[in-house]
Write a protein that binds this DNA or RNA. Structure first.
Lengths: 249, 249
DNA sequence: CAGTGGTCTAGACCACCTT
DNA sequence: AGGTGGTCTAGACCACTGA
């Protein structure tokens, strides 16, 4: 329990010329990134947060509303306000037009799981030192026994030792819940980048297409709430099964 | 000037169980789509809007704030609240990595401008009857005399007669301001769809690549504020100069 | 039932733009 | 100077959740 004297009060934030709500928002973002609330425990109720910041409840509600709109927080009437996990609603993956029922998760088959050392590309992607230990997993995604996506996944060691040693059947089709269970790491956000490349011989064989067929490559960096890169992933799928839509306004 | 009796009051909106702010928002969206304010004339001031809806200014401000966040309205302190044109900040076009200074508009060269009749694909894309009149323009975009994008643009006639007859030098590199000037049509929003195709012989020649090179195709449907499709556009660029990023949270 | 977030109000004061 | 949107407050009442 905090005393009022410990609390930063309305003076928080770097630039006192900023509006009050902006400074409060910055401070809340800082505390979320610091892991003060972990996704299962709610933030303090509005009234108590407003008191501790010494602002009116209306101003605090404006800040919480903005953070909810941005997908950082999730508000549930009667229950409380929670830090949200990354939802991957916007993920580019979803735009491979594959034959399969809506809402179902495709089958996944882990082809390999081997320790590696970081080359310069991976060291940069994961923000680790050259030559440090990584876990590399290669996975195939399939609909009705028909492969449509190859995933190469790299995780830093020793942080993910538990994933390296877990029974493969413990991992299941969704890896992020497994990371949380085994290594206590939660995905807070991610960045994906799309590009088009020609299939290597290996990729072509796995996807049963001709070599040099155009593939869509999606590179994903997944971050913790604190902003540390926890996973780097490259996925390749056949380009002519890919459609992506954007709304502009 | 409206009398209070004419105004819909707080009872507007289809479902009276909806919160007040949601019903007001629906009504404002309807009036925006109906073209009640055209982008240069401001909406009535907050106080007068709140009075005419018989709601408090705080509730009205909430609605206007949401519409501004969604990019529908633009608020300018001291000036007023305006309906926004489409900004194309999110356009997929921007992700062709071309050599050229930031912020500059690439050169454009109109290769052809011919009347056509709508085939089934174009009729569906522009929501017009099969066989109705269209204007087809083909345009090349270049950086330093190096072509990187082919654009095929279709406009419904007779609405865009003025564009069909204007001097080509009147069109300039940006078409949407020209549509507004010549045909009094403003873009309110747009949808873009990305796919990957193989270059035809003609496309390959124009872009000086080998036939069957992978191209990124971007199909764009541009809409008026009223939701009518005013332009359909297909653009093709070399796929390996394309990079697209998405943030996920 | 107590506690949470959701809605709505009424009004004060400030910062900015136009005239 | 007058009018616009921007900030902030204080409080009433409602709807939902969980024990």
């Amino acid at each position: 329990m905090k005393s009022i004297e410990e609390d930063p009060g309305p003076g928080v934030g770097p630039d006192p010329r900023l509006p009050l709500h902006a400074r409060i928002k910055d401070d809340l973002l800082r505390r979320i990134r610091a892991g003060e609330w972990n996704g299962t425990t709610p933030l303090p109720p509005e009234s108590s947060l407003a008191d501790s910041y010494e602002i009116s409840i209306g101003t605090l509600r404006r800040v919480l509303g903005e953070l909810a709109t941005e997908g950082i927080l999730e508000r549930q009437q009667g229950r409380g306000t929670f830090v949200r996990r990354a939802s991957f609603q916007n993920s580019l993956y979803r735009f491979f037009r594959v034959q399969g029922q809506e809402g179902q998760t495709p089958l996944s088959r882990i082809l390999s799981r081997t320790p590696e050392t970081a080359d310069s590309v991976l060291a940069a992607a994961l923000n680790v030192r050259l030559g440090s230990g990584l876990l590399h997993m290669r996975r195939l995604r399939l609909w009705n026994e028909h492969p449509f996506l190859i995933e190469d996944i790299w995780l830093p060691l020793p942080r993910f030792d538990a994933v390296a040693q877990a029974d493969l059947s413990d991992l299941g089709p969704l890896l992020y819940p497994a990371y949380e269970r085994l290594a206590c790491v939660v995905v807070g956000s991610a960045t994906e980048e799309l590009s088009v490349v020609a299939a290597t011989a290996t990729q072509a064989a796995l996807l049963s297409v001709a070599p040099d067929t155009a593939l869509v490559r999606i590179s994903r960096s997944a971050l913790t709430h604190a902003g540390e890169i926890m996973e780097y992933r490259e996925s390749h799928g056949v380009a002519n099964s890919f459609r992506y839509r954007v709304e502009i306004s």
